[in-house]
Nucleic acid binder design. Structure first.
Length: 749
DNA sequence: AAAAACTATTTTTTT
DNA sequence: AATAGTTTTT
């Protein structure tokens, strides 16, 4: 590929250009948020190709399919090419799957193996634990699943898992062995296997590793801070210390520790690769000054980091806005109003706006409000569509078509529609199959023959087998094959009946139609489309990867999903201690959890280009009851001068509606709750924090007028600090009472 | 064996 | 509050 086209390097700064032009040997590119690392990587790939590197000598690894696709498109754009056969730009997991399809037999699988997700994995494990006569709570199964997952992430075998406390009496060697036996029988790999097995194979078979070493002369890894030990081990088999390994990462954006990512990989890189050059990109091209300094201010509170300070040549821009609502609905309503205001008055479009949150469920109130406000939005959820029961049922059939040994799919499909094969029959069939060392479906014909199952179960099972056989002989297009199977097996009929029953019509049938259409369009887009290929897509490609983010709609997503993206306007909602930072993460050992939450916050803040707006709710329903959370500790860490204004709290609603309006309150639908600009010494972040309902009595002073939702207006008499600060208040109507401070807001009236 | 009633659990984040 | 999983009833 020695196209005459010289690569345009003028658009890069000196450091970026240096990294692009770096010659041979390892290089660690420490690239801060918004510092143009993707530009560097894509330019580098383009440069290598232009200078004559063979496309199949280049391997670029990313974490998400979205990143891979973007990278590929940008490389193609730089080269003016529309395809480069042999060039591999892929996620770790896709590459692992591809590798394993080629070497499947070496690890007891066929080329058609199925990828098991967490739920499938749990199902197998439930079975394995039952076989070992372990008392199995759902919780214990999940704990073991996590343990096995973690072991694999760390490059260990399932047999070497650390037993979780819920099932500590079990021997991991036994659990692991049984689990792996069932996985092999089902011709399945779990996510961990997609990394672990290639690493193991290449470690054992040196000649093979040698082949890949020779092929991939140029290896680039994006988001290196998110690699786990298994990925790193795999990488090292074909990219040894003297190779041209080019890794890009930012220790401050390591947010996948819970998935086994080890920041150590990036911190230790210079030791593992002693010849490595280290290049830092610290100029940020994305965010205005105030936003950048807010992010810097927060992340500076972490101890375990390489340490860098991003800077920008852009202006300061607008300061950060804070808002506190009484509850999640108030917060949601305000956010919707604010978005409408920004679009109406300041020229932003809904597509410029992202609302980020710590967890998926936080979007619920906002979705409702946005709908009512007539604002288009798109929730970028992990994989909502494929999670629906009816879609999973249908997919179970597809899975059986591809891999008849997929026991998890078999157990699911046989029950939809119900055909007389229940728990007992399944248990007998399972035992029979286990004795013959076969999967359930493989053993089924013999089981019918031997009358292992009888009566209605027997005919039901026979019908099921017949439907599958008939589909197997159907040589039409994959989508037609699936449709035929679903019809013959009675799935469609069942769904139609269900839809009628639930009158409101959730459209379960329609969802399955959508699935069939998805298979069809996959067929049309993919040259040699197979159902196996489609299933791999379903497992490895999430909606996040496909989401059209600039479709003119407001984007709602988790911070994790927002990684790598940028938006002119960013809202971060739910900034409360316990929510963001997440309560569970906080009780992680040695503050590692808090630091990861802080990095997550850093990622959230650095998504914003021009406007950053942070909100929280004073109370929020969680698990069905109302919780009063303190403001997020990260708010307190914002530098004092980047915040727009003293924030003005909204009066809590009364039972009857909204209280009379007092001077200085925002009008009910006034989107900007902003008081006169503060003088410098008046505004220190602690004051803002206090007003957010902070640590020891939220900025309340004796004598202050306050509002309580049930008890009305009153005057503070005494402040009682502590874990859950309370106030003694003289209420106008009901006299002196002691109430939790979090129920109370300052009030001028 | 299937449907209905009840219960426990969940909200961390995803390849 | 919603759901997945478990137990009881038919």
């Amino acid at each position: 590929m020695s196209a005459g086209a010289a690569l345009e390097l003028d658009s890069l700064n000196a450091i970026q250009r240096d990294a692009v032009l770096h010659d041979e040997g390892p290089l660690l590119l420490l690239a801060g948020a918004g510092s143009g690392k993707t530009r560097v990587v894509t330019h580098r790939i383009a440069r290598l190709l232009i200078e004559g590197a063979a496309p199949d000598s280049v391997l670029a690894l990313t974490f998400t399919n979205r990143a891979a696709r973007e990278m590929r498109e940008r490389v193609f754009a730089l080269l003016g090419a529309d395809d480069l056969p042999g060039l591999t730009i892929s996620t770790f997991h896709s590459l692992g799957a591809r590798f394993l399809r080629q070497h499947a037999t070496a690890v007891g699988r066929t080329r058609a193996f199925t990828i098991y997700d967490d739920d499938d994995q749990s199902a197998v494990l439930r079975e394995a634990l039952a076989d070992l006569n372990a008392g199995l709570t759902a919780k214990g199964v999940r704990a073991w699943r996590r343990a096995i997952d973690q072991a694999k992430n760390a490059g260990l075998d399932a047999r070497e898992a650390t037993p979780p406390s819920e099932g500590a009496f079990l021997d991991p060697a036994e659990v692991g062995a049984r689990y792996e036996l069932l996985m092999e029988r089902a011709d399945a790999f779990d996510f961990g296997d997609l990394i672990l097995r290639p690493a193991q194979i290449l470690t054992e078979v040196q000649s093979l590793a040698e082949r890949y070493r020779e092929r991939w002369r140029w290896v680039l890894v994006d988001e290196f801070q998110d690699t786990n030990r298994a990925q790193y081990a795999w990488l090292r088999t074909f990219a040894p210390p003297d190779s041209n390994l080019f890794v890009v990462g930012d220790d401050d954006q390591s947010i996948y520790g819970w998935r086994g990512a080890e920041v150590e990989n990036i911190l230790q890189f210079p030791h593992e690769y002693p010849r490595a050059r280290v290049v830092r990109l610290e100029q940020n091209y994305r965010s205005d000054g105030h936003i950048l300094r807010a992010a810097n201010g927060v992340i500076a509170h972490n101890d375990r980091r390489l340490g860098k300070d991003l800077w920008t040549e852009r202006g300061e821009g607008t300061r950060i806005e804070l808002y506190e609502g009484h509850d999640a609905r108030a917060e949601a309503r305000w956010v919707a109003e604010r978005i409408a205001g920004l679009c109406r008055d300041e020229g932003y479009a809904p597509g410029d706006v992202a609302v980020l949150m710590r967890a998926n469920h936080l979007s619920l109130d906002l979705e409702e409000t946005l709908t009512r406000a007539g604002l288009r939005y798109a929730v970028v959820r992990g994989r909502s569509f494929y999670d629906r029961a009816e879609v999973r049922d249908a997919i179970a059939y597809v899975r059986l078509l591809v891999n008849p040994n997929d026991d998890v799919a078999f157990r699911r499909a046989i029950g939809v529609p119900t055909r007389g094969v229940g728990k007992t029959s399944l248990a007998r069939l399972a035992e029979f199959a286990d004795g013959r060392d076969q999967s359930a479906l493989a053993a089924a014909p013999a089981a019918i023959e031997a009358a292992v199952v009888r009566g209605r179960a027997r005919t039901g099972l026979a019908e099921f087998l017949a439907a599958l056989d008939a589909a197997g002989e159907d040589d039409g297009r994959p989508s037609a094959q699936v449709r035929g199977l679903l019809e013959r097996a009675g799935v469609m009929e069942q769904l139609a009946n269900e839809d009628v029953e639930r009158e409101a019509g959730e459209g379960r049938q329609a969802n399955v139609e959508r699935l069939l259409q998805a298979i069809e369009s996959y067929e049309q887009e993919t040259p040699d489309a197979t159902l196996a290929g489609y299933l791999e897509q379903v497992k490895l490609v999430s909606e996040v990867d496909v989401a059209q983010l600039s479709g003119g709609a407001v984007s709602l997503m988790t911070v994790h999903a927002a990684k790598g993206l940028e938006f002119p306007v960013v809202f971060v909602i739910g900034l409360e201690d316990g929510v963001f930072p997440n309560a569970r993460a906080l009780d992680d050992l040695e503050g590692a959890g808090e630091e990861e939450e802080r990095r997550l916050c850093y990622v959230a803040l650095t998504r914003a280009e021009r406007r950053l707006i942070l909100t929280r709710a004073r109370q929020r329903r969680t698990f069905g009851d109302v919780r009063h959370n303190a403001p997020s500790r990260f708010l307190r860490e914002l530098p004092r001068d980047v915040v727009e204004s003293r924030y003005v709290p909204e009066p809590p609603p009364t039972q009857r509606g909204w209280p009379r309006r007092a001077a200085g309150w925002p009008r009910e639908h006034d989107p900007v709750a902003v008081a006169p600009a503060p003088s410098d010494d008046e505004l220190c972040m602690d004051a803002v924090y206090d007003e957010f309902g902070g640590a020891d009595g939220p900025g309340f002073r004796p004598g202050m007028r306050v509002w309580h939702a049930q008890l009305g207006a009153g005057r503070v008499r005494k402040i009682n600090p502590g874990m859950r600060p309370s106030l003694t208040i003289d209420f106008d109507d009901v006299g002196q009472r002691k109430v939790l401070a979090s129920f109370v807001a300052p009030y001028e009236g």
